[in-house]
Amino acid sequence: MTNMLKDPAVLRELIMDHYKYPRNHELVEDDSYDSRHMASDSCIDDITVQSKIEDGIIKDIRFDGVACTICTASTSIMTELLKGKSIDEANVIIENYFNMMNEKTYDEDILEEAIAMMNVHRQANRIKCATIGWKAIKEMIDRK
């Protein structure tokens, strides 16, 4: 990965930027989109993730909801990272992301900005925040 993404100050700034200005942060009313509402009792994040997957390609991902810094930033980064990818490419990225969360070996380079979440496992109670957006897209990919 680029050296910039090894600088904690840059990663901090990335989280802040995606939290304050989340990307793809508006839902659409369109039947061609699949949708997942992600909420649980143990975690107060409450988001909805939408995706449009056609011909094995993730054409669009959107999300909205009320959520903490980690949930908002991780989901925002995910939408940018996976949009336009094939399902096969996306599955590899998602697998590496969950490996990072679970402190297993992962490929830093293909995670790009999602590397900002590399230390979330240090606050284990927040892993859920960093993964519910990613779980939503994984569920929708698997249903295809």
Partner: peptide, 23 residues
């Protein structure tokens, strides 16, 4: 500051509070 972010920060200082909608 989102409540859960505040709760986690306080947790790193060994302070236990509850964040959430408290059911």
């Amino acid at each position: 500051v989102f409540a859960q972010d505040a709760g986690s920060y306080l947790s790193t200082k060994n302070i236990c509070v509850r964040s959430g909608n408290h059911c």
